[in-house]
Design a binder for these strands. Sequence first.
DNA 1: ACCATACACGCAGAAACATGCAAGAACAGG
DNA 2: CCTGTTCTTGCATGTTTCTGCGTGTATGGT
Lengths: 252, 252
Amino acid sequence: MLAAERRDHLLALLAREGKVVAKDVAADLGISEDSVRRDLRDLAAEGLCQRVYGGALPASPAVVGYAERQSVTPDGKRRVAAAAVGLVRPGSTLILDGGTTALAVAGLLPADLDCTVITHSPTVVAALLEHPRAELFLLGGRIFKHSAVACGAAAVEAAQNVSADLCLLGVTGVHPEAGLTTGDADEAAMKRALAARAAETWILASAEKIGAASPFRVLPWPRIGGLVTDADPTHPVLERLAADGVELLTAR
Amino acid sequence: MLAAERRDHLLALLAREGKVVAKDVAADLGISEDSVRRDLRDLAAEGLCQRVYGGALPASPAVVGYAERQSVTPDGKRRVAAAAVGLVRPGSTLILDGGTTALAVAGLLPADLDCTVITHSPTVVAALLEHPRAELFLLGGRIFKHSAVACGAAAVEAAQNVSADLCLLGVTGVHPEAGLTTGDADEAAMKRALAARAAETWILASAEKIGAASPFRVLPWPRIGGLVTDADPTHPVLERLAADGVELLTAR
DNA sequence: ACCATACACGCAGAAACATGCAAGAACAGG
DNA sequence: CCTGTTCTTGCATGTTTCTGCGTGTATGGT
């Protein structure tokens, strides 16, 4: 049985039965419960299911729809997201970006987390609906379909009215000269607006983003609180960042 | 039986029966009363139910909305939604409410529909992401979790800046004296704001809503363009509406 | 005021979980 | 074809979480 096959089986089971019990599946397929748990954890990180004690339940259709359009969330993003979760303090206010990495963060936040989450991503909202103690605030605006987030003048303006302790931002490039970059101008403007409204901004960037550059700059790169990545800390770009006083959090 | 599943079961029961008796549920599911009590205590702590001696009652009428999201869209709502789709003109601007009925409308809109959709529901946005020619505008604000839509002052204010040709609004009650009603005050205010920004407002109400009344009024009922329902047009409430000049569209 | 029932609390066994580790398979490069 | 590497998988470990039971207390009905 291939790993991918197992994943498909779990998703199919989830769709058909409405739930998955780790123990039962393990027995049915003749594999260890650990593997099932590992698979479920990965699926949950991609927003394709909701992990619960003993197994998993279907995620909200909105999240599944978005997650399926993306390719599988690579391991790097999952690790980065898991590390970033540690930055979130209970009782604080968090600005959470859109995109797969930020979505993975949302999926990995503890279910009973007591904090306020501000986001411009409908998908992140959907992922956090089941968190009873999380207060959600959605920044509206024109929807940029490619990444399914609100962008444009209205969204940037809406962002002016909020303040937060921490902002977690995903980018597609972390480059010495270009700074922190992304692939769309409106999106870059929105990310910039978000970063400006938080006391501290941390960047989420899996290894393949380090040293890469996209067309539009979000921020000149020393202007951030820290960076979460799974890349080797000895990477020249990261060493230069560290020398500039940017805190690095290495995900493993 | 998973713990999370038990919780869902309790919420569904609460929505369907209007109450939960700890002893009965324990016997039905073959679990100890302590577990049921523990679950109810947790749910109450999350504001999802109201704990009473012997069991629990729904926290607010809005909880019904929450439970509805779990189950499949009933046939009546689907018929109403299908009929409402016919009201949407290509090239026009549409304000679409949150809630299951409006979501069903979103799901039934033709894939190549060329129009602008304004909504305060992240779920509706997710449903329309695959419509390449649809321009989406999301109204942000504090998320009202029970129905997963943006509400509150910020959302109402955001609504002031849009205008549309048609507004499709779901309500939970259509009553001769109470008017058009829903289960939450903020939600009612939001729906009112949406209706005010459209040239014409149509109400979506499946048969069980006709003659029912919820705590909070959205609009006094003659102030609408039309009503889509699958109820019998000879229903006294509908006849009175028709006499007041409200257009009726009967879904079959 | 009395009694039956519901309840909260603490406890202990059981189940689920995360983590580290090692054996094996798949893979890439020479 | 061989070798070193990476990835996967199952197992062992310790930890956390859940659940049912016993005890004593609170509540509501009679």
